[in-house]
Nucleic acid binder design. Structure first.
Lengths: 340, 340
DNA sequence: TATTTTTATGCAAACGTTATCGGGAACGTT
DNA sequence: AACGTTCCCGATAACGTTTGCATAAAAATA
């Protein structure tokens, strides 16, 4: 990796490093002959400026940090795809961190980010997180941050989310119109914004059709399969068990399907199911899964754009008013929620 | 982000930067009182060493680059999950790049990597790539590199792969034992090592059972759905159409299933299907997909371990003999390949 | 020719850190 | 009293780069 430096060029050509630097940057105040000489030498020996030295000098790294709960979750990997696409085009590198839904792990990641002098941060909060003070502090110290998907009210910065309320509302309404009256909602960590917003949408739909809301029908799950087994058992042992289930994600819907299958419950006849996200495989499932599409790629792209704008605006210190961008969701109706 | 530096501490405490540095690093040759003073001050003002300055000084970045074809591909996101886990534990950061199966894009990424002074590189080759000279050059210049999944013979370094031959052989044999005699193989880019190895396994199984190999039954696909439509049409219009299909990935199997469904072909009765990877959803598909499990997480972990060992050994310049690690695959038999 | 202007280059500082070297002060040893 | 140790600490250089300032030489002007 013996890469050549500006010093090497200077020595070889009997020039000073300043001259070489200026020649390379195309400064006007340099003799065209010298300039040519330097540039040719640099080409020949494949000179590449040391980005670390530049980072040190300019106090920026041209890289952004991304913290997601799990990279191995199709939703997030699609978001990252969008982030990478934009960052690549604008000359930034993407450094990946996972919180694994753990507050502690997220906290450690934030510490790394803080000291690593990454130029900005994109984050979707961990399920365990209900204290964002560290993130807030980081933001107040001047780190450009954009929150996506799982956001927090306590931090005043750009946010990019799906229209979770609308998505859950439409999905629930769909179940109701299909004749369901006892609809359960299996959701994620109660701390998460997506959870809260979707629960609200779910309740709003029930209210609209004057269906009583039963707290016992709202279940908070993590992603383990034992947990899903437990939840389903609880729901089924109700005196009035559900005839429809809205899950907070396709991944949960998948577990839900699997568990119900082992219990010989027919879908959608006995229980209808609607998911969230629209996994690639959703249409090929048995039965094909009705789901609320989330525009994950766009979420990543938009988030990255906002963050990079923030980073590049920071220097010119134009005051920014922060906004929350809500992306449209769409209900795709398939077999899992339509009888007959 | 106004982070404090060693200079600030020195100034505030009327010490030299050297003393502060030594105190912070716990050097013995420092007065315990002074040391305590410095450390307390550093704590109080939340001093964090500037990693960029350290990188410049030590000429290493404590970060590794990862180039994958698509991050939004469950196999690769699982691999990255493994990579991140190990890197995190060993104090390295992961910088992500995508080639999108494009040679040109991969090449540009390699250029970035080369000049970015990442400490090492993990790469799985793009489908288009059949010239690895740039990668080779990078390796010869001293960059520690580990190849995974899609590797190349031309580069002498550590490699981590699945036992593709064995996986394809077992899968094909399974189809044969289930009574199939006309087995097609839909695979990926012919340049890829995984393609070549799996084709070999497929052919070896056919040979073992003295089934003639028909080139027309081997189809090279990209991941677009139109392409799949075309391929299926070609296969079906054969005078002797296939009764079984082995695909190079579950993603292709998914497309395959979808296309066959639209053509009202029953699976597994008319055509059996076997995939590769074992997506989370594979067991929930209609029909449930028989597939060869690839240990993606372990692949990522092992690759990262090897790379980090390589990086850390580099300094002590112990000569390394490179190895290729073959991870076991396993056939999971489900409905898509078993009649009755 | 003497002076000013222009042109082209070098010097040194700076970014934050650590390592090498050296040195003053205090102490102990002859 | 002279010398050697030990203990702390500071000055400096170095990593690779850019940049403000200085300056020599050349050119232009008077």
């Amino acid at each position: 990796m013996e890469l050549i430096t500006i010093k090497d060029i200077a020595k070889a050509l009997n020039l000073s490093t300043s001259t070489v630097s200026r020649a390379l940057r195309g400064s006007y105040e340099i003799n065209p002959d010298t300039k040519k000489l330097v540039i040719e030498y640099a080409e020949k020996y494949n000179y590449r400026p040391n980005p670390i030295a530049l980072s040190l000098k300019e106090n920026k790294s041209r890289s952004i940090g991304v913290i997601v709960p799990e990279i191995d979750n199709p939703f997030f990997s699609q978001v990252i795809n969008g982030i990478e696409a934009i960052s690549y085009n604008r000359g930034y590198h993407v450094v990946i961190f996972q919180s694994h839904e753990s507050f502690e792990r997220e906290s450690i990641n934030l510490k790394h980010i803080a000291s690593r002098r990454v130029d900005g941060l994109l984050i979707s909060l961990a399920g365990e997180t209900n204290d964002v003070s560290q993130l807030k502090e980081l933001h107040e110290k001047g780190m450009p941050i954009v929150l996506f998907d799982r956001v927090s009210d306590e931090i005043n910065t750009h946010k990019v989310i799906s229209d979770n309320f609308e998505g859950a509302f439409t999905a629930t309404e769909h179940l109701i119109r299909e004749g369901r009256r006892r609809i359960a909602h299996i959701t994620a960590s109660p701390y998460l914004s997506i959870t809260k917003e979707r629960v609200k949408g779910y309740i709003a739909a029930l209210n609209k059709y004057e269906i009583p809301v039963d707290e016992a029908m709202i279940k908070y799950s993590n992603y383990s399969s034992e947990n899903m087994e437990l939840i389903i058992d609880e729901l089924l042992s109700e005196t009035n068990p559900p005839d429809g289930i809205l899950t907070v994600s396709d991944r949960l819907a998948l577990g839900c399907l699997a568990t119900l299958k082992t219990k010989k419950i027919t879908i959608p006849e006995q229980i209808s199911i609607v998911g969230f996200t629209n996994l690639k495989a959703a249409s090929m499932l048995e039965p094909a899964l009705t789901t609320v599409v989330q525009p994950s790629l766009q979420m990543g792209q938009r988030s990255a754009e906002l963050l990079l704008d923030l980073i590049e605006r920071k220097t010119s210190s134009i005051p920014t008013t922060y906004q929350t961008f809500k992306l449209y969701t769409e209900l795709i109706i398939r077999e899992s929620s339509v009888v007959g």
